[in-house]
Amino acid sequence: DHWHVHIDGERIRLDGASEEFIRTLEELIRRGTDARELKEIIKEYLR
């Protein structure tokens, strides 16, 4: 599956992301997590 998110107007691909990770991201977004912080979390995950 190819997922991607838009954060700060930037399109970030989440290739190979699990549904669990996507749900976690959605939860963080709902909580109002800062965009820079979200991008860091995604970069760490994709390593």
Score class of each variant (00 low, 15 high):
L28P: 00
G32I: 02
K43Y: 13
E27W: 08
G16Q: 07
V5T: 08
Y45N: 03
L38S: 00
L14G: 01
I29Q: 04
E20F: 08
E44A: 09
G9P: 03
A35C: 08
W3T: 08
L28V: 06
E40G: 07
I29H: 02
E19D: 13
R47G: 14
L46N: 06
F21L: 07
D1H: 13
K39Q: 09
R31S: 12
I7D: 02
H6N: 14
L38R: 00
E40S: 10
L14E: 00
R11Y: 15
E26T: 12
S18E: 05
I29L: 10
I29A: 03
L28M: 11
E27V: 08
E44M: 08
E26C: 09
R11H: 15
R11V: 15
W3P: 11
I22V: 10
I42N: 00
T33F: 08
E37W: 10
R47N: 14
L46E: 06
G16A: 02
E37D: 09
L25A: 01
H6W: 15
A17V: 13
E27K: 07
L25I: 12
K43I: 13
D15C: 03
R31L: 14
G32P: 03
I22M: 09
I12C: 01
E40P: 01
G16V: 05
G32Y: 02
E40N: 11
R30G: 09
S18C: 01
R47M: 15
T33R: 05
I29T: 03
V5Y: 05
K43A: 15
G32N: 04
A17F: 07
R31V: 13
F21S: 01
E27H: 09
E19Y: 11
D15P: 11
T24L: 13
E40M: 10
E10S: 03
K39T: 08
I29F: 04
L28G: 02
D1L: 12
E20Q: 11
G32W: 03
A35G: 10
H4G: 06
R13L: 12
V5M: 07
D1A: 08
E40L: 12
V5L: 08
L25R: 00
T24P: 00
F21D: 02
A17Q: 03
K43G: 11
E37N: 05
H4P: 04
D34E: 11
G9K: 03
D8C: 04
I22E: 01
L38N: 00
R23G: 07
Y45W: 11
D1M: 11
Y45S: 03
E40Y: 06
H4I: 15
E40D: 08
D34S: 14
D1G: 14
L46W: 11
R36E: 13
D8Q: 06
T33P: 02
R47L: 07
D34N: 14
V5Q: 02
R23H: 09
S18G: 09
K39W: 14
E19I: 13
W3Y: 14
L25G: 00
E27N: 09
L14A: 04
I29E: 02
W3H: 07
D8L: 03
L38F: 03
L25S: 00
E10W: 04
K43T: 13
R47F: 13
R31F: 10
I12N: 01
D34A: 07
I41C: 03
G32E: 03
L28T: 03
R23M: 11
W3Q: 09
